[in-house]
Design a protein around this nucleic acid. Structure first.
Lengths: 136, 136
DNA sequence: TATTGTTATACTCTATAACTATA
DNA sequence: TATAGTTATAGAGTATAACAATA
């Protein structure tokens, strides 16, 4: 259905512009989002982001140079490195999340509460179905 | 609302992967989509894509090198160039559109027809509201 | 002078291949 | 040998600034 795609372009456009206001690329935002409640190794992080490990090295380099994340040597494997979000990175994430939420609230304000709940329920069912779909 | 964002990531992920199967970037897909029913000038195209004109030069260069689009000199302004999709570009767009539509149909098949219609109506209302929202 | 477009340059993002260090 | 990660290299995508040609 076309409306859902249009909406997805709209939302992603917002995300991109809000990120750009803070000189972040979409992938840097995803990186910070993943690190919100995890401290994964480089390979694990590459898997989350669907990137090659070499791509991740540069990505983390740049985020680290900006003080948004930091590499922490793994204690039990001296080859391995984990990545942790810094206080600065966390604060930046919060700022952006707030902006996004305010936009989203304004967008959905057009619907009365009952219909908003119906929309959420329908989208949630669609998402649950998506999990079952063949990955292809 | 979080579910809508999740859905937007899912759909954009599909688009990206289907485009990658054909060695196209998301922006190349948008370029071809815009050219489906228009033959705009470079500046106009840059405005649609929200790019600098210099960025567009390279984008069109690469698409032209692959035979997907072609530059056509404007007849009434010798400075201006218009961009036209080729038969090959059009065919590629059709192929990808078909794949996306099939995925979308499978995704929404979880909802009975009546609820699918309700979802469309709700999303459409939200989109209409989005037009009214301050651009900022 | 203003507008349309390209070129030069620099940076981010990405992949592949080769490498280092550790397991 | 295998695994975790980095480095070297190359190409796409983007922006800013300087430029050429035409209006």
């Amino acid at each position: 259905m076309d409306a859902l795609f249009q909406l997805s372009f709209l939302l992603q456009g917002w995300l991109g512009r809000i990120a750009a206001e803070h000189d972040l690329s979409p992938v840097q935002v995803r990186l910070l989002g993943i690190l919100r409640d995890r401290q994964p190794g480089m390979l694990e992080l590459a898997r989350y982001l669907e990137l090659e490990k070499s791509s991740l090295s540069g990505l983390v380099d740049r985020a680290e140079a900006r003080g948004l994340v930091e590499r922490v040597p793994s204690s039990d494997d001296r080859r391995a490195t984990t990545v942790r979000v810094t206080a600065l990175g966390r604060q930046l994430t919060r700022t952006m999340t707030g902006k996004v939420e305010r936009k989203m609230t304004a967008l959905l304000a057009v619907l009365p509460e009952k219909e908003r709940a119906r929309l959420t329920a329908l989208v949630t069912r669609v998402l649950e179905n998506a999990m079952q779909l063949p990955v292809e």
